[in-house]
Structures are given as C-alpha cells and as structure tokens.
C-alpha cells in the first residue's frame, strides 16, 4: 500500500511540475511580448482577456489548428524527430532542479523531482544532447537557410558550452559536490551575503555563465541562428503548426531552465535574501511555500533580464560572436577556475 502511495505521489508530482512548467513557458512568451512592447513604447498584446492575459491560450489554439505542412524535399524521419529531440531535452532538465526546502510527505520530496548526486552534470549533458534537435532540423529541411542557421547554431552552442561548463566549476569547487541541493544548502546560511555571486566571489563566473547561457539558448544578442534579416527564420524555416510550436516552446523552456540553474548556482536557490534576519512567521505551510516564492522571484528577475537585453542590445556579427566566446570568455573562465582553486587551497 505504501509503495502505491509513493508511486502515485511521484507521478502526481511529475505531472504538476510539467504542467506548471509548460504554463510558465506560455506566459514567458506573453511576458516577453508585453515587456518588449513597453520598451518600444507600445502596449503589446492587450485584446484577449484582461491585459492580454489569455493571449498564450489563443496562440496555442491557433498553432494547434494550423495545417501541418510537410515539404516534399525534406528527409522525413529526421524532420519529424528533430523538434521532438529539441522539446524533450528542454523539458528533462527541470527534473533535477530543486525549488524548495527538502520537505517530505509520505517519503516523497515535495519540491524536487529527482535528487541526483550528479544533478549539475545531468543538466550539462541534456543541454549537449539538445544541440541535435537544432542541427538535425536544419539539415533535414533541405533548405539552405535552415542549414546555415543550424550550422551557426551548433557551432555557437558547442563553443559556448566550454565557457558554460568552466564557469560552474568555481561553484562546484566551493561546494565539493555536484548535487544541486548541496550547492544551495551552502548558500543558505547568511542570506544574500553567502550567495555564491557575492559571498562566494563568483561574480565573474556569474557574468561568464550569463553570456554563455544567452548564447546557448540562441537569444539576442547571440540569436544569429535565426537572424531574420539574413536567414529568413534560420533552422525552423520549413516548420509549421505544432512542429514549429515545439521549437518555440523548447527555446522558452530552455530560457526558464537556464534561469533556474543560474538561481541555484549563483543566487542562492530558494534561500531568502534576508537569511534569518526576520523571525519565522505563519504556519508550516507558509514556511514551506516561502522558499518557493523566493525561487520563483529570482527566476522571474532572470527572465526579465533576458527580455530587457533583447529589447536593448543589437545582434553580434558571427566572427565577433566566435571571437568573444573563444578569446574572451574562455580565458576568463580558466583564470576564474585557477583563482578559485588557489583561494580555496589557502583559505578553504
């Protein structure tokens, strides 16, 4: 009987997290359209529902009802497989991210799907497999714009993955563990002062992670794979209806995942910025949900930053992008790893 409850609760947890995640993806699109609208001095979507709040529903319905075109010259199996790879890789990473204290109910961890010893590596691994979605979509479309877009994108993702991987090493060195809960617990003691970005002196690593993450998710100022002025739409030019929607969702899901990882690694995860400055208030329910509130707030500010950057910065040129990744970010990341290990060796 107990094992049955355990399995049911786990399934329920996975379902709830997935639904919330997909809703978050839909509303991130709305957030982006609204914010970019305000930055450009217009209102953004405002017709469907109050403040345009039902716009994601309308968009989803529209994409779902569109005709699913299958161009004649595509390589069919991979053309269909590519968006599935992209979306599933984007959805898997959320499974290892902790978004609240380790509170157990019937032996089930309420605020994390899977607590793995190697959680951080799982995220890096899933990201590196996710490249195939984009690479294969461009190739199988049999379209020169798609191919160019996907080549750019894969080259960019492979290059920036190095800087991304090296930037998190400082955090791992400080924690001595690849488990995401351990990483947050270390930053949980004195509020904002013990977060890795400030107390851990990982602010350089945070900057590297930020740049590399923008490039990994193909967002402005590194959105060359879909530079519409030169490549029509890049790797998803030939896609329509739900297949296009899957790429679209994968991009926004990746943004949220990157925000979650940045929060966990550098911004103290679910820990409150005030530490234990204020006495605990409310019942156990409030105390359990308050960390989740902080976590969501941090991820939200990260997404806000994403949109703000998109509304502000122009696109890089491709050689500038590669030069920035290999000649600037990578050396700085290596220096950061060396400096962190030296400091830890003499003071840790």
């Amino acid at each position: 009987m107990n094992i049955l409850i355990f399995i049911l609760l786990n399934l329920l947890k996975v379902a709830v997290v997935t639904v919330i995640f997909l809703m978050a993806v839909a509303y991130t699109v709305l957030l982006e359209r609204k914010l970019v609208g305000r930055i450009q001095n217009r209102w953004g979507p405002s017709r469907v529902g109050p403040f345009g709040l039902l716009q994601p529903l309308a968009d989803g319905l529209k994409l779902f009802l569109k005709e699913d075109l299958m161009p004649t010259a595509v390589f069919r199996p991979l053309f269909i497989l590519a968006p599935i790879i992209a979306l599933s890789c984007a959805l898997i990473s959320i499974g290892v991210i902790p978004f609240g204290e380790n509170i157990r109910w019937h032996g089930v961890d309420m605020f994390q799907i899977a607590d793995l010893n190697i959680g951080l590596l799982v995220i890096l691994g899933v990201t590196s497999v996710g490249i195939y979605g984009i690479a294969l979509s461009g190739w199988s479309s049999n379209n020169k714009y798609s191919l160019l877009g996907s080549l750019r994108s894969s080259a960019q993702m492979v290059s920036y993955e190095l800087a991304l991987g090296l930037s998190v090493i400082g955090v791992v060195l400080r924690t001595g563990s690849l488990r995401l809960r351990d990483i947050v617990n270390l930053q949980n003691t004195h509020g904002i002062l013990s977060w890795n970005i400030f107390g851990g002196l990982q602010i350089v690593a945070f900057f590297i992670y930020l740049c590399a993450a923008f490039a990994e998710t193909n967002r402005t100022p590194f959105d060359l794979p879909e530079a519409e002025s030169e490549l029509t739409a890049g790797y998803h030019t030939e896609y329509s209806s739900m297949k296009f929607a899957m790429f679209f969702m994968a991009e926004y899901a990746n943004m949220i995942t990157v925000g979650c990882v940045a929060t966990v690694l550098f911004l103290g995860g679910w820990s409150s910025p005030f530490g234990s400055l204020f006495p605990a208030f409310g019942g156990p329910l409030v105390q359990a949900l308050l960390p989740v509130f902080w976590f969501v707030l941090k991820v939200f500010s990260f997404l806000f930053l994403y949109v703000w950057v998109r509304g502000t910065l122009p696109r890089f040129r491709y050689d500038q992008l590669m030069g920035f990744g290999w000649k600037f970010l990578l050396p700085i990341a290596i220096v950061n790893v060396m400096a962190t290990s030296l400091v830890l060796a003499f003071h840790g």
Binding site: L121, S128, V129, Y132, L147, S154, A155, E161
Partner: peptide
Amino acid sequence: IIVYSGAIMVLFVFVIML
C-alpha cells in the same frame, strides 16, 4: 553523454552535414 554523445558526435554530424 557529455563528451561522446554531445561533443564528439556533434562534430561527426557536422562533418556529414557540411
């Protein structure tokens, strides 16, 4: 996964595509 499935095989696929 990271080294073989991710990095090395991406290069293979890349070469085939190019």
